[in-house]
Design a protein around this nucleic acid. Structure first.
Lengths: 344, 344
DNA sequence: TAGAGCCTGGACAACGTTGTCAACTCTGGG
DNA sequence: CCCAGAGTTGACAACGTTGTCCAGGCTCTA
């Protein structure tokens, strides 16, 4: 009855108190040894170390965090841990966090705003020092109290909705414009655009770049040449096939991201006549396909690194106003964009 | 002076005490509302909710964890967050964790045993409920005290070193044997093997499979046909080129994992004569290369899911002895393995 | 040898939460 | 009109750690 609490304890880990008792020293002395603080004689330190090893003691960071206020951890909300585009971003954030002695907690929103919110707030409840978010939703006011309370927040890949905050982006508009211009330069006049869902910022920016390039070339755009929607293979396949076989078939495709590109490659490989292709995002083995795929490359690792560095600068106390950083994209011509249009 | 502590506080987040004061209720009542416990009148609940919103209160999970003992989080140590083989495994673990209401903390060991250890122990200090580890090192006795203390631990992809614990593996031996047998069946007698570093369990298992297949076919193995080492492109490229141009050149290659396969594809594409290839691990677009790449496929998501489910079963109190689960592999013939040997 | 000063070690409170338990209010029946 | 009992509410301790502060023992010097 005296210690009914025991039943709630997790396992029965030794605490500093246990170590102190076994080593015959005070609680605070154990704390000093564990944290490498000065003011402990070598002999005392040795006794404490022995007790630690004998008991298998490990400091409880929850208690430490509670007392100290800082958690030395940051949260990352991304769209899909397994997406080959976000994985290097994830890794880059991890490396920066590691360099700053922080742990990384992450999760996938699966492009669901509600899930993004749950994750971000769960991280806040864990009192991460900072948060990096790849937005799924378009309203991030729910983070306002957290940011006010001191949780540094940086958005990546897409800007925050209804909230001013640091954001690190790729130049989607310019990249898409350059990619489409590349196709135009190789003689294409009927170019299709297949992109992600309309509520996703990068999708509309890239579409804007497409329109800008077409307009700059004085080319009309048929509405059947543009398709936004989920990037699931079925949807993309249907869209691509429709564009290739419609009344005014396109002779080239611009794919709005890596997922779309992969499916487009498959459709084109099965098509009756050659179709030019330029994709947004580089991907592994793009150069080994035939034809090799011309892409507008972003640098996802750099996106992640830039965002994380910005976050840690904030954590170091930098208080300048929120900034928008836009990283350049790079057109990598490999062949698939240079295919001339088949004659009508 | 009265509250010098303020300087150590992180931000200045409101606590339940603040909410209680504002709502004019007791501390415990706030706790009840926050946790949805019964026994609070609608009117009181409303007042508390208002105070929560007004102050921007969010429960501090560190304190909660300290009090309750369970953290509802698990740790995952993998080799590289950005590796296309491990990313789906990571995602699968995340999904299972999510289904159990747990958060995921993860990190990359970068194939460095010391870093694996640091990460795993840091997770333990955070008192994760459980740990999933893709071993980088070959001695995991450092986890013994943690496991004794109650942190459930499951190893994936490679077995633990000097420790009996649950482990989930793919059938590396059988997969490699089948892959090499496939090459033998298509007439190859001189087959090269390029694998990962010798201290990695899967690397040696796959090499064992290679030898088994060769022996079963009554084929001799020249020592110049086998190369183990880092999977960096330079090393693999050198190894492959040496095998293709040596005194007894190979007519087919077996690649020990996805990284090796990718580089092998590049070397073969540049080779003077066709070379057959079978790779361990499937990869995106393998079917679109020419020739399409025949692989021995594992299911990384299933590896992750299986391991995570095992972990949560342990957390639910299942106490059966540690088990070793071996998942089957699947040979996917696509063409590159069916190329017949060029005549000598 | 006494006093000053330094070094080591320990008692204690506080971090924010939750479990226990007791006190309080209100309703309805006798 | 009073009491039993149900339903609400709050005071308090504890989780394991770290910061503060003080006590005691030592060395060194005058």
């Amino acid at each position: 009855m005296a210690d009914t609490n025991t039943q709630y304890r997790y396992g029965n880990r030794p605490t500093m108190k246990d170590v102190a008792a076994r080593a015959g020293v005070g609680l605070k002395t154990v704390s000093r040894v564990v944290n490498g603080e000065p003011g402990v004689t070598p002999d005392t330190e040795r006794r404490v170390q022995e007790a630690i090893t004998a008991l298998g003691f490990r400091r409880n960071d929850s208690a430490r965090i509670l007392r100290k206020g800082r958690t030395a951890s940051i949260g990352l909300v991304l769209e899909d841990l397994a997406d080959p585009f976000y994985a290097p971003l994830n890794r880059a954030v991890e490396e920066v966090a590691r360099a700053h002695g922080a742990l990384l907690i992450n999760g996938s929103s699966a492009e669901d705003p509600e899930r993004e919110r749950e994750l971000a707030l769960a991280f806040c409840a864990r009192r991460v020092d900072g948060l990096i978010v790849i937005p799924a939703g378009d309203d991030h006011r729910y983070l306002e109290p957290e940011i006010t309370a001191g949780i540094a927040t940086v958005f990546v890949d897409r800007p925050a909705g209804r909230l001013t905050a640091d954001v690190v982006l790729s130049d989607s508009f310019g990249g898409a414009r350059d990619g489409v211009a590349h196709l135009v330069a190789h003689g294409h006049r009927r170019i299709g655009f297949i992109g992600d869902q309309a509520h996703i910022h990068t999708a509309t920016e890239r579409l804007r770049g497409y329109h800008a390039a077409m307009r700059a070339a004085g080319l009309p755009v048929d509405e059947s040449w543009v398709s936004l929607g989920p990037t699931a293979p079925d949807r993309v396949r249907a869209a691509a096939e429709a564009m290739l076989s419609g009344p005014r078939p396109v002779t080239a495709l611009f794919a709005g991201n890596n997922r779309v590109t992969v499916t487009a490659v498959r459709v084109i490989a099965a098509a009756a006549r050659p179709v030019a292709l330029v994709g947004f995002d580089d991907f592994e083995l793009a150069d080994l396909l035939s034809p090799a795929v011309t892409v507008v490359a972003q640098d996802p690792a750099r996106l992640g690194r830039t965002a994380a560095e910005r976050l840690f600068r904030r954590l170091d106390g930098v208080t300048e106003p929120p900034r928008r950083v836009e990283l350049p994209t790079r057109l990598i011509p490999r062949g698939s964009g240079e295919i001339p249009p088949a004659e009508d």
